[in-house]
Structure formats: structure tokens, C-alpha cells
Design a protein around this nucleic acid. Structure first.
Length: 232
DNA sequence: GGAAATATTGTGCGCGATCA
DNA sequence: TGATCGCGCACAATATTTCC
């Protein structure tokens, strides 16, 4: 049932509904789809793509920069396995003050237990599905089932976002041509000879393409252009 | 038709890596 | 250590397209 619903989801709205049904099916109160934070990131808000968590919880979480001290975030960065927790697990004896404050915040919003399941998507980033609520700990078979459904949901999310990105092609024909030659290992001078341009002009095209696709260099540009199927 | 926006082409310069 | 090369950035001029 859930598998079929996920397979049929072709839009963010359909995915949102399917995630809600997953949440309900496993007796959780909230579900979030987010990019797994790196060690440097301190704010959760920009990483969240979908969430039913109360806005007040997210606001207070970020206001207190709790991501830095959140034991779940630290664990999930270190392991690819599903991470499940209860507030009692997090707030052990001798817990630091920021962790105590986090647990208090969770308690105020009825978040006494949860699980997060993460996978890498083809854009190179790691994404996770997080379920929060007040239910008892998941059994191993429930974790296995939820992991398979989460993998499917994240893949659907990846397809939806990438097809949306591919439709939004901001590059001009000339820029695509230069990116395409760059992907084949040609230098700016070589591309300039092929297209009868100066290498500086080739550089300018690449610079524009890098800016348009929000990349940091031509290596990332080629990778992203291939991923978005802008070039073959 | 003219203004505005966008694309195309070009120049100069600085930075970092590599090599003789 | 200096020369060379690849890369990235800032900027300017011109051509083309779009819109009113």
C-alpha cells in the first residue's frame, strides 16, 4: 500500500501525503525530510525540505543553536544505520546543559522518541527521514520495513527535485557547448580553437555557467551539468 | 521603433600548481 | 626561484532578443 503510493508519487504534494501516511502507519506524530547536517552547520531550518514539526519547535531549536549539541545529529553523522532514540536515552546522568535544554524543548512538544533513517542521493548529499512522536521503541522488523520505505521515499524525492532542476535550464546554447567540451577534458585554449574563440571567451562562458548553476568551479559545473542531463 | 534585458565576445589581472 | 599554464574574477563593448 505505502510502497505503491510512494511509487506513484510524481509531485512534492503527492510525496508529502505519502510521508504523512508513513508517519501515521508507524504511529509517529511528526515526519521531516531533511539534508543531514555537516559538522559546520549550526542551523536546522535551511536543511529541512518537508516537515510537520511545530514551527515553534524548529524556531526555538535554531534560536538555541541546538544542532551543535544534538546527540542525534552527532550520531547520524557517524553512522549510516538507522538511529532511534528516546528522550531518556539522550538525557542521561551528567548530560551537558545544552542537551538538557534540548530534551526539555522536545518534552514541551511531545517528542519523547524518534528515529532517523538516512541515505545518500545522487546529488552527493545525504538526506534523512526523521520521525518524531511519543510511541514505544520500534521493533527490528519495523525498523527494517521503515528503512525500505524511507529509501524509496528519498529516491522519489531525488527524482522529483532533479527533474525540476533539469527543466530549469538557465544556460545558453553557447554555454552548454563550452561545458560539453569541458566535460570531454578539453582546456579553455583547446575549446577556443575548436569553436574559433579566444580562451578568455571560453573562460567567460564557463564563469557564467558556474555562476548560473551555483557551482564553485568547473569540476562541479561538469558534474552538475551531467547530473541534470544538460549535457550528455 | 526604441528602451531594456540578455547574450556574445573580448581584455586584463591575480592566484595557485607545476616544472626546469 | 622564476617561467608557464590553467583557472577564476571583474569589467567593457557590441550584438541580439524581448517587451511596451
Amino acid at each position: 500500500m505505502l510502497t505503491g503510493e510512494l511509487a506513484a508519487a510524481k509531485s512534492r504534494e503527492a510525496l508529502r501525503i505519502a510521508l504523512g501516511n508513513m508517519r501515521q502507519s508507524f504511529n509517529y506524530d511528526f515526519v521531516s525530510l531533511l539534508r543531514i547536517p555537516s559538522e559546520q552547520e549550526k542551523i536546522l531550518g535551511p536543511l529541512i525540505h518537508e516537515s510537520t514539526l511545530p514551527q515553534a519547535f524548529l524556531r526555538d531549536f535554531d534560536r538555541g543553536q541546538m544542532l551543535t549539541h544534538c546527540p542525534v545529529s552527532i550520531k547520524v553523522r557517524r553512522s549510516m544505520l538507522p538511529i532511534s532514540w528516546t528522550v531518556d536515552d539522550l538525557k542521561g546522568p551528567g548530560s551537558k546543559q545544552p542537551v538538557v535544554e534540548l530534551c526539555d524543548l522536545m518534552g514541551r512538544h511531545g517528542l519523547s522518541s524518534g528515529v532517523i533513517i538516512s541515505f545518500f542521493l545522487s546529488d552527493g548529499h545525504r538526506y534523512g527521514l526523521r520521525f518524531d512522536g511519543a510511541r514505544s521503541a520500534l521493533t527490528q522488523s519495523e525498523i527494517n520495513e521503515l528503512s525500505m520505505l524511507s529509501l524509496q521515499a528519498l529516491e522519489v524525492f531525488g527524482h522529483i527535485t532533479m527533474s525540476r532542476d533539469a527543466q530549469h535550464n538557465p544556460l545558453s546554447a553557447r554555454e552548454l557547448e563550452v561545458v560539453s567540451w569541458t566535460a570531454q577534458g578539453k582546456t579553455s585554449v583547446e575549446i577556443g580553437q575548436i569553436l574559433t574563440l579566444s580562451d578568455h571567451t571560453v573562460n567567460a562562458y564557463l564563469t557564467n555557467a558556474i555562476r548560473k548553476l551555483d557551482c564553485v568551479n568547473r569540476t562541479q559545473l561538469v558534474a552538475k551539468a551531467l547530473r541534470l542531463k544538460l549535457i550528455a
